[in-house]
């Protein structure tokens, strides 16, 4: 059964290990940081510039989950909206290397580090996406490995030995 929403998008068969997706840029305003923090991470040093200045971080910094959210958004814009995605299985080794401060610009690249067919669901392929997120000074801000599912165009094709 063909999915009319994704039929013209890239499928599992179209992806290659080593493919690099260059992400766009996103500058974080004070309002971005505070509005996310109010809803999801209401710690004083994400909410109040005065408190933040005196904290370990030395200024208003975004919640680590917001940095992750904007990174994901950039991957959707450049990649996931163009592939026949089926959602995520999770992620490994998320590391917040340094805080993303007010007016910092987040950018980065994502590399396909692994591809394999699902053994139990022949219509599903598994893609591992390694994030390397940086600020405007090219300092590493965050890394993580996201594991997502992608539709296989031809589920009847034989599944290789190293499948999951």
């Amino acid at each position: 059964m063909t999915n009319p929403i994704t039929k013209d998008r890239r499928h599992f068969e179209d992806l290659k290990v080593g493919e690099v997706v260059q992400l766009g840029k996103r500058t974080l305003s004070k309002d971005d940081i505070i509005s996310f923090a109010k809803e999801f991470d209401p710690l004083p040093f994400h909410l109040d510039e005065e408190v933040a200045r005196k904290s370990l971080l030395g200024g208003l910094a975004s919640s680590g989950w917001q940095t992750a959210g904007f990174s994901l958004r950039m991957l959707v814009d450049e990649f996931l909206s163009k592939v026949a995605g089926m959602g995520g299985l999770g992620f490994d080794n998320l590391k917040w290397k340094r805080p993303l401060m007010k007016n910092d610009t987040l950018t980065g690249a994502v590399t396909i580090s692994a591809l394999r067919r699902s053994k139990s669901h022949p219509e599903m392929g598994i893609v591992v996406l390694d994030f390397d997120m940086r600020n405007q000074k090219d300092q590493q801000v965050m890394t993580l490995s996201l594991t997502n599912l992608v539709e296989v165009r031809d589920p009847s094709a034989p599944i290789e030995e190293n499948a999951a």
Binding site: G87, G88, F91, K95, W96
Partner: peptide, 15 residues
Amino acid sequence: SGPSPGVNKMEFKAP
């Protein structure tokens, strides 16, 4: 408590 250095593992099990 101090800031979190990261997440070792996250598994999405059910929607």
